[in-house]
Design a protein around this nucleic acid. Structure first.
Lengths: 119, 119
DNA sequence: CCGTATCCTCCGGGATACTG
DNA sequence: CAGTATCCCGGAGGATACGG
């Protein structure tokens, strides 16, 4: 099966592709505590551009992982929040986070050994 | 903190960046059963190019997730196998796989709702 | 069989400027 | 404040050819 076909029939790949996104996990993590406004998010996630933040939020909203609330203040206020579904994903990502933290030393050691051998 | 600096100090991001790789998870999954040779792997993972497969295997080997064994047959045989460390990561990825399978319907429904509203 | 080397294309994403 | 529009560049990755 070709990759394009595969990705559309494989839930895991869909989720991984979302998490793979350079910024999506950071956004989700940032929303975990409390709802945040667009520019606040942009300030807090250093280095992200307006365009990319906008794209990431749209994808997350489309997947039902993040919600978007508009308040008719002047000027307008938009708040992004994690959804219950997003929260369950966030919890699952924590398992991966734990693996990473538990094994980072081993991985780094393997890398150094590999690099030394390559010289 | 800039992203480049962030990624080097964040184990989670390192791991996610590895999993994010278009093919790494597929390779790891393919090795989960038994060791496989290079061209065999290339045939089984449809659509991957020699160059990319080679790159992915090198990264996984560097991280200590995959091992490489050379047999002095004629012509030479090279077998790639998952390491114990790789196997623990693979197990953790399963948690994500389960989340994906359990929630794919919800996500797809959210996407369709989003798309209908956007018309 | 197991790769590396080279070329080339495509597009993700940054910078910048502008709008409701 | 909350985005969209446009331009542009670097790097990922496919195709192809060649080397050990």
């Amino acid at each position: 099966m070709e990759y394009d076909a595969y990705i559309q029939t494989c839930p895991t790949r869909m989720v991984l592709d979302r998490l793979a996104d350079k910024w999506a996990v950071l956004v989700l993590g940032r929303l975990d505590d409390k709802p945040v406004r667009f520019n606040q998010l942009k300030r807090e996630i250093d280095g992200i551009s307006q365009k990319v933040l906008s794209q990431v939020l749209k994808k997350l909203e489309r997947d039902g992982l993040v919600s978007r609330a508009i308040f008719a203040t002047v000027p307008v206020t938009v708040e992004y929040a994690i959804t219950p579904l997003g929260r369950t994903l966030s919890a699952t990502v924590d398992a991966l986070r734990r693996w990473a933290e538990d094994n980072i030393e081993t991985v780094l050691a393997a890398q150094q050994k590999y690099d030394r051998a390559a010289v």
